[in-house]
Design a protein around this nucleic acid. Sequence first.
DNA 1: TGATAGATATAAGTAAAACTTATAGTTTAA
DNA 2: TTAAACTATAAGTTTTACTTATATCTATCA
Lengths: 298, 298
Amino acid sequence: MEVRQLKYLLSIGREGTFTAAAEKLFISQSALSQQVKSMEEELGVPLFDRSRNRLHFTEAGALLHQRAKHIVREVEEAKKAIHELEQLYRGTLRIGVVQTINAYLIPKIVAHFSSRYPEVQLRVHELSAPEIERQLSEHELDLGLSFKPTDYPKLTFDPLFEEELMLIVNPQHPFARREEVEAKALESEQLMLLSEGYCTRRIWDEAAKMADISPKVLIEMNTISSLLSALEDHPKAGTILPALTMKMKAAHGLSAIRIVHPSPTRTAGILWRAQGYRSKASRKLAEIATNMVQELKQ
Amino acid sequence: MEVRQLKYLLSIGREGTFTAAAEKLFISQSALSQQVKSMEEELGVPLFDRSRNRLHFTEAGALLHQRAKHIVREVEEAKKAIHELEQLYRGTLRIGVVQTINAYLIPKIVAHFSSRYPEVQLRVHELSAPEIERQLSEHELDLGLSFKPTDYPKLTFDPLFEEELMLIVNPQHPFARREEVEAKALESEQLMLLSEGYCTRRIWDEAAKMADISPKVLIEMNTISSLLSALEDHPKAGTILPALTMKMKAAHGLSAIRIVHPSPTRTAGILWRAQGYRSKASRKLAEIATNMVQELKQ
DNA sequence: TGATAGATATAAGTAAAACTTATAGTTTAA
DNA sequence: TTAAACTATAAGTTTTACTTATATCTATCA
């Protein structure tokens, strides 16, 4: 039994005769008769009583007619739901974000997106960069806001902006007033860093390697805010974090000094699965993120 | 979008690949690909993400898959409901019954029918014979238990039994002890009869005409029981009612006398629409009624 | 690094179905 | 009784669904 046939039934119910229903359906009366017959054969029961002038449903016919109304409506609603999805009147968007972007960009992006598309549910997961890459590959996320991955097997990366890693210290620290500092000069410093595995840490480790130094790591922590607050208790120590960190409230009163030779930089951007379908919602969100970065650059 | 296609979608959801789903569906993988493609074209949205090894639903695909489960289940349930109707595990049977049959036969028939088919809802309407004929023609009833109609344009009549009309009187009445009475002898009697339009009345009127008499009609009433109780207050009057009436409690203590020359008789039976579908329930009920009359005759 | 296995897509042809036209049969109403 | 309105059926056509065969892609393994 097909949806088409059920629609025929509804039309017959509305019109009262095969002939009128067939006209409304833009098919011949004969085709309609045949389809009804095939339904009756499939079900093994007559659906109509053709004895009298006016057509009547049999009990089975009336039952099926009743059900058909529901079924056809549900099919139409399913189609509608999908179109709404495409119009962003519905749906879910799962995005994975690294800590810094979460703190810096996400509030603005979310505000913008959800005021334009209030029916789309945003699920923002703060995750480490590798975890974002994994979950994206596993279709557990739709979109990532992260850093350029070292190797991206099935992922594409659209850069949003570049960002330097800065040495962040307490104002009491001897470097506090300096504009910039040579990487080499950090050799003897006590550093509090993000745990290994974090992108920021990896980039710093590479920069240190390039400068041929290996400064002492006093403490490893896994959130930016805990590092920042730790600075208050360790005025002699420093930490290395992305420049954006300074926009956080928790960084208020701290000093950020550029590191040169080399300057550890990382590229933030949008991460997608390389091939495959990108939902309208994810494309819109990426667009908003891009525009927002453009605006902030000016 | 057709039920067939939605079933395909469900199978793909279960099996995880087109190939496996096609096998389970006993169609080629190619056919399945084509059908999915046609759905995607109809909806204007991809349903699957074919980028990776394992197949993934897109958000739209997952949404449709979800809906398809409901829709396909509803279609199956509609089919099942119709089969239940045929198995008499479901349904409604509307029967129209004349007063005497209602009082005499219906309780037994209903008891039998509803103990065998408890899921079928019986709707018994006590109606006049012409009203039964009209409602049956208008498809407002499925079956009638009534009397042989004078002219039955689109109805068939299967006789169940014949029944004589009797003169019913109070024991004080002069005829009370007689075995039978000539129709002619009723000329001078005071009669309390059913209203015109009732079958019993019509048959009596015809018999009176044949006997060339026109007895005085003292009172017309429209229920049998009111006639019977009226007899108590009018010991000199009589009423003419079907023999079966005497089986009613209300007739206790009254006398029934056969009328001869002519003997007004009527034939009770089952009334159907001549052509057209007869539901299984109505056929079963007719069968039970027939058997019941056979048993009672013995 | 190719070779292979396992998957989907596509092209072309075939089978099945849905549909059309034409016609016959019914029923109702004039 | 005939015409009008309706449904059923037969025969032929068109469209759709499907099959076979092949191409293409990806992941895995040697």
